[in-house]
Structures are given as C-alpha cells and as structure tokens.
Nucleic acid binder design. Structure first.
Length: 175
DNA sequence: CCCTGATTCGC
DNA sequence: GCGAATCAGG
C-alpha cells in the first residue's frame, strides 16, 4: 500500500480526532502502526493533545544490533554488551532471614548473579554488598522462588487492625 | 503482558 | 519518503 492523497487525508482526520496510531493503521489497512507514526512525523503533525508525554528523553544511542542483510550476511556494528538478561534484583532484603542456606552448586559455590539461571530460586541470601552474597538457587517451578521461599515471599498481607490481631498474633507464635 | 508515541536508519 | 526495529514509558 502507498500513501495516496486519500489515505493521507484519512490519516490526518483520524489523527486529529485523537485515534491512536494502531487504530488508524487498523482502519486504513495494509499498514502497521509504525508506518502510521512514521507518516505522522513526516507530515509534521506529531504533537496533539497528548495526555501522557511530559517526559523528555535524552537522545537515543545508536542501535547496536546485528542486522541480517538480504544476501545473508550479518553485520554487527559493535560488540554489544553481553547483558545476560539478569532480571534478578533483590529489591528489598527480607527482614527475616531465610531458614534455607544457599544451594550448593556443582562447583561447590552458591548461586550468584552470574550463575543464577532462569528456573532457579531468586531468593537473596546475605548482604548484597557482601562478596559472599548469593541466591537460594533451588528449583523455582512456577515463580521466582522455590516452594519454601515462595511461602515467605507471597504471604498474604497482614491485617492492620492491631487491636484485634494482637491476641491472634500471640496465639500464632505460641503455636 | 498489553498498550502508547518517538526515534533511528537501512532501504 | 518509507517503515521495521527499538526505545521509553503508561
């Protein structure tokens, strides 16, 4: 599809009416929302009553991604950082120490940020500033934690009504 | 995860 | 000029 005058007019109209780029692309057909956005920018009507855009982004860096050329060659602009997708972040260290020690790995050490695999318990153990800081490392089946740590991590929120819950608390810790 | 617009850059 | 890929958010 190409941007005929007719299609451009429809684009202008819908954009002025506040439709999103994906909605416009869907209605026009034959184009993606990226195409619509690109055209909108080229037409110079990017801004409008944007409810959420008070953010100024610093200039984007070049795109360091290998590109597959039509002839099959792969061009890699620069050696991109490994970035092993480690989305394991302690966020907040639990106040109560976990009863479970870190799982010993095959090499004798414990799971660290470098050796933590996807399906390993990401419960932090120790002080993140400590060189010996590690993760539980046990098998985490359907969540970020192993079965034991999941119980601790996903405890239901306590009732905040202290007056009434005090008695319950005593009973709880007493058995 | 879904979505939004913004930007870059090979084509 | 075009738009996929990517980014930065909601």
């Amino acid at each position: 599809m190409s941007w005929t005058d007719e299609r451009v007019n429809v684009l202008k109209k819908l954009w002025a009416e506040g439709h999103s780029a994906s909605q416009i692309a869907k209605q026009l057909g034959g184009v993606t929302r990226n195409a619509v956005i690109g055209k909108v920018h080229r037409l110079g009507l990017s801004g409008r009553a944007t409810p959420s855009r008070p953010v100024k982004r610093p200039p984007r860096l070049a795109r360091p991604k290998p590109r597959l050329m039509p002839d099959g060659t792969v061009t890699t602009p620069a050696a991109a950082a490994p970035a092993p997708t480690e989305h394991a972040r302690p966020v907040e260290r639990p106040a109560m120490i976990a009863p479970l020690p870190p799982l010993k790995l095959a090499d004798g050490g414990a799971a660290t940020i470098l050796t933590l695999r996807d399906s390993m318990c990401k419960w932090p153990i120790g002080d993140p500033a400590d060189p010996k800081f590690a993760f539980c490392g046990r098998k985490s089946d359907c969540g970020p934690y192993c079965a034991e740590h999941a119980k601790v991590a996903f405890q239901p929120a306590r009732k905040r009504d202290q007056k009434k819950s005090q008695y319950d608390y005593v009973r709880r810790i007493a058995g």
